[in-house]
Amino acid sequence: MLRLPAVLTVPGDVLAGTAAAGARPGRATALAVGASICLYEAGMALNDWADLDEDAVARPHRPLPSGRVRPRAALTAAGALTATGLALAACAGRRTLAVAAPLAATVWAYDLKLKHTAAGPAAMAAARGLDLLLGAAAADRPLRPALVPAATLAGHTCAVTLVSRRETEGGSPAAPLTALAATAALTASLLSAPHHPAADHPAPHHPAADRPTAHHPTPHHHAVRTALALGYLTTAAGPLVHAALHPSPALVQRAVGAGIRATVCLQGALAARAGAPATGLLTAALAPAAARLARKVSTT
């Protein structure tokens, strides 16, 4: 029910936000990662509770319709995980809680009301964007430098969510083609010459993560950013092409799973583009584990 392969895509949101803010990961970052994971898992449990009737027809093997988990237990878990996530955010600081609260509200609104409406993809995208901003807030830095990375991550999430809406019936190449175009555009933006707005807010007592100078990226920065951006492209694009050519439920579901896993490379590329290649590589290191787990546990 908690989709462990997908959980490995969560820490990179906060790490990318911390890098975008020009800060080094620390105790508050770890607390924000914990909060992020809890809120994500709350959304997973709440999603299955809200979709019980639909899953009983389309996905009877899932934990709730199969009877392995009781609906009340899923709802209780969602509430407990949300409370734990907000508590961890509060421990990280008031600014972190100020971002975590609307994030939690977005998660609940999506699962209970917005998922099957036209606003569903935008709500899911907003949740991922807020999750990245959580990292900047935990670093106690201005959120403005993290807005563009948050929008990039939100764009990818919106595209994957559009594809996921047809994962049980398939039938249309439109969503995979749209997601493929979005993936190509986002990759091009990742490969473009970066600007480091975080450098406009230097913090003498908190040196930037692992960049020598914010306005003069080294060849190492460029190589890591390029590799991670291309990793994002190759992970997401191939399954989308297959789903566009043959939009069967199996291939659409495979494209959705690949899009979720590609999030890790995207997060790493965003961190590297912000001038933190070590953080980017650390984030991307979660991708192989997510791929291995996906062979045993469904990502979607």
Rank of each mutant, 00 (worst) to 15 (best):
T29R: 07
P60M: 13
A284Y: 02
R273D: 01
A30Q: 03
L103N: 01
T218I: 10
A179K: 13
P202C: 06
A150T: 08
A137E: 01
R95K: 09
A125W: 03
G171V: 14
A262N: 02
A182Y: 03
A182H: 13
V14H: 03
L270K: 11
I37V: 15
V33I: 14
L133H: 03
A109I: 02
A199W: 06
L130V: 10
R141M: 06
P71D: 06
R166V: 13
A77V: 03
L86E: 10
T82I: 05
T84H: 06
T152I: 15
W49C: 03
L52S: 07
A126D: 00
G231R: 07
L230P: 01
V14D: 01
R295C: 12
A23E: 12
P217T: 08
C38N: 02
A20W: 00
V148P: 00
M1Y: 07
A92H: 08
A151Q: 10
A244S: 05
L233H: 05
K115R: 13
A287T: 04
R165C: 08
H205E: 09
R261C: 10
A250H: 11
A175S: 10
P288V: 05
S36F: 06
S66V: 09
A122M: 09
R225N: 15
A100G: 11
D200T: 09
A42G: 14
